[in-house]
């Protein structure tokens, strides 16, 4: 879900941008220069994945996979997803410029949350259990994102509350799809290349 320019109130835009800057800053601290290739290629992968459309009912939706991005990248999901949104806004005209900060927080904050919730279990347990945790992460990230978008809309004005409810409703099927999909992706990665969940794992003690 992209929020567009012109709908949100100025305080919401400012607060969203400030949060995004803080998140990106934290993410960059976890990303020393020799991890830039891994972060760059992985975030390009998430960009390409978001161009993939999957069928839903008679129509189709593009993937978001911010849950999977969080599971793999941790705090680095903030800069990675920000870059994706920036390139989409600049080169495709999707989303908007003044809402860049808000949109970044809406997808990246849930990514970081599911990282903390699910990655310990994914790395500890076998592929099958890991897939279940992956599903929880994938679906949970979408639910949290929809919640963030709805909250941001509702904070911008009473009149957006019905649109906010609609956002949550519209994301229910997406949640299901991304849950199944993320579970499968985690199952495969856990079997073939378990390092994927450790490259950007949060260090046990501070940075």
């Amino acid at each position: 879900m992209h929020i567009v320019d012109g709908a949100l109130s100025i305080p919401v835009l400012v607060a969203g941008s400030a949060l995004a800057v803080a998140g990106i800053g934290l993410g960059l601290r976890r990303m020393p220069i020799d991890k830039i290739p891994a972060a760059g290629v992985l975030s390009a992968t998430f960009f390409v994945a978001s161009l993939v459309h999957v069928p839903i009912g008679p129509s189709s939706v593009h993937l978001i996979v911010n849950g999977l991005a969080g599971l793999v990248l941790g705090w680095a999901a903030f800069p990675a997803l920000f870059v994706g949104l920036l390139l989409q806004a600049a080169f495709f005209g999707f989303g908007g410029l003044t809402v860049l900060g808000v949109n970044t927080v809406d997808v990246a904050l849930p990514a970081v949350i599911v990282h903390y919730l699910c990655v310990p279990a994914i790395t500890r347990s076998g592929p099958r259990a890991a897939a279940i945790w992956g599903s929880i992460g994938g679906a949970g990230a979408i639910a949290l994102s929809a919640g963030c978008v709805a909250l941001v809309l509702a904070l911008s004005g009473e009149e957006f509350v019905p649109a906010a409810r609609l956002v949550i409703l519209a994301h229910a099927p997406v949640m299901l799809i991304e849950g199944i999909l993320t579970g499968a992706a985690v199952f495969l990665a856990r079997k073939v290349k378990p390092e994927l969940f450790v490259v950007f794992a949060t260090p046990a003690r501070g940075v």
Binding site: V41, L42, P55, A184, A185, L188
Partner: peptide, 26 residues
């Protein structure tokens, strides 16, 4: 592609495969 669990699982493997290849490429 269809509206089925099989489709979503397959796309999941597609994305997972892309991530694995991406990490190895990096």
């Amino acid at each position: 592609p269809a509206n089925s669990r099989h489709t979503y699982v397959t796309y999941g493997y597609l994305v997972g495969m892309m991530l694995i290849r991406a990490l190895e490429r990096s």
